[in-house]
Amino acid sequence: MILNFPFITMVLVTIIGLCIILFRKNLLKVIMGISLIESAMNLFIVALDFKEGGIAPIFTLAPLEPGVEPAAAASAMVLPVPQALCLTSIVIAVATGALMLSFAMLIYRKYGTLDISKISRLNG
């Protein structure tokens, strides 16, 4: 049961983020909601391949005593692939967040407001 806590948290944070995107009027809050959903995604990816009693996959911390084979020490580690996926996802979230925030700044300068019901001047 306790191993399911990361997934329950991820679903709760995603639902909160979706409610923010749908129901808030300020553009900066919408961008913050998107950033919340991306953080929940990173939590989901890292929590995917967790082994109970595993250690961090760092070469210099491998528990290599004189009687233990390297393969057995390697299989006690948590899988490192989801950590690389999570790192890529964080980098993409940073780039997207920076782009959307600079768009929000330009819109404030040209339109004078950050209310999303007033920003939609293109219609038809």
Partner: peptide, 9 residues
């Protein structure tokens, strides 16, 4: 290669 096992790095 990076050495495996406990070492100062």
């Amino acid at each position: 290669y990076v050495p495996f096992g406990p070492n100062p790095g």
